[in-house]
């Protein structure tokens, strides 16, 4: 198709947005809300993953060794731990180091330790688990290593975090799906109204030899234009919402830092990506809504 005729069809589609203003505005609004929630949910997930990563990084299992392990056994256990792909940061803690650490923790009561006749602290390894969801299985495997007395793992904290993440993904996914369906239905209805308003023109176009593509293109432009506008508006709102939440957590608050709320992504780092994704998602939803309406109501 010639550029001049393609431009004509694009203009026709965009002008239809204004002619069909009320329905276009309804589509725009619902699409904007959907895309706002989609982009906020994605950004939240992205940062929740960062926070989970932060927490996972501090998530240690202490592997206590038996009382009378030989140096060879210690070396063997160390090599077993280092070869385990689920673990990172394998660190050996000697009896002396353990006592020293305990002494530091006891602070002003540390003098009590001077009354001990021998060092009661066991040798141990501190290891970190790469993936919190595997902590139970990893812990079980560690207990079966020859020379390991017992382990100490933060099961409850890990399982709560994993549960929160899974629940959030499930509910978020269901809400997103519902919003996507609603958006498509609304866009499809808007285009249907537009098709109805232009039914005489469509009929005339058929009689004078317009192809299916020529008749449907303006409706696609209309649906996709509304989608892109909604995507851009949702992007602006996401920026506002995200920046206010970001400034809350990125302030120098030790409490938040303790819970792993650091290393969050500033909006400026991902703004163009978010804009592109929002506009593309808007255009896609607009196009799907148009496909449904034009397929159903325009028979060429």
């Amino acid at each position: 198709m010639r550029t001049s005729n393609a431009t004509y069809l694009v203009k026709k589609g965009i002008s239809s947005v204004w002619k069909n203003f009320l329905m276009s505005f309804a589509s725009f609004s619902i699409l904007m809300v959907s895309l706002l929630l989609v982009s906020c949910a994605l950004l939240l997930m992205m940062n929740v993953n960062t926070i989970m990563g932060n927490i996972e990084d501090t998530n240690e299992i202490t592997v206590y060794l038996e009382e009378n392990v030989t140096d060879e056994q210690v070396e063997h256990i160390k090599s077993v731990l280092e070869k385990n792909d689920d673990l990172t940061d394998v660190q050996y803690v000697s009896k002396e180091q353990a006592l020293e650490d305990f002494r530091n923790d006891m602070a002003e009561y540390s003098e009590l330790l001077d009354y001990l006749e021998e060092n009661p602290m066991p040798e141990a390894f501190l290891v970190r688990v790469k993936d919190l969801t595997k902590i139970r299985a990893v812990d079980k495997a560690l207990n079966q290593i020859d020379g390991v007395e017992k382990t100490k793992a933060p099961y409850d904290f890990a399982s709560v975090l994993t549960h929160i993440r899974n629940t959030f993904s499930l509910i978020g996914g269901a809400v997103l799906l519902a919003l996507i369906v609603v958006s498509i239905v609304i866009v499809s209805n808007t285009i249907r109204t537009s098709v109805f308003a232009r039914r005489n023109e469509i009929n005339i176009m058929r009689y004078v030899g317009a192809t299916s593509g020529f008749i449907k293109t303006p409706f696609f432009v209309e649906g996709m234009f509304i989608g892109v506008l909604a995507g851009a508006a949702a992007w602006g709102l996401t920026w506002l919402v995200y920046d206010s939440v970001f400034s809350l957590f990125s302030a120098d608050l030790t409490l938040w830092q303790m819970f792993g709320f650091y290393g969050l992504t500033p909006f400026e780092d991902i703004m163009w990506l978010v804009l592109a994704v929002n506009c593309a998602a808007g255009a896609l939803l607009g196009a799907v809504g148009t496909v449904i309406s034009t397929g159903k109501y325009i028979k060429v």
Binding site: E201, N203, I204, R206, Y207, V208, G209, A210, T211, V300
Partner: peptide, 24 residues
């Protein structure tokens, strides 16, 4: 079939009783 019908209609001229002009 399909767009061949559209192409055929372009090769003929149609005049209707109710004119069928686009009012806008």
């Amino acid at each position: 079939k399909g767009n061949q019908v559209a192409k055929f209609r372009r090769s003929i001229g149609m005049v209707f009783q109710d004119f069928r002009l686009i009012q806008e």
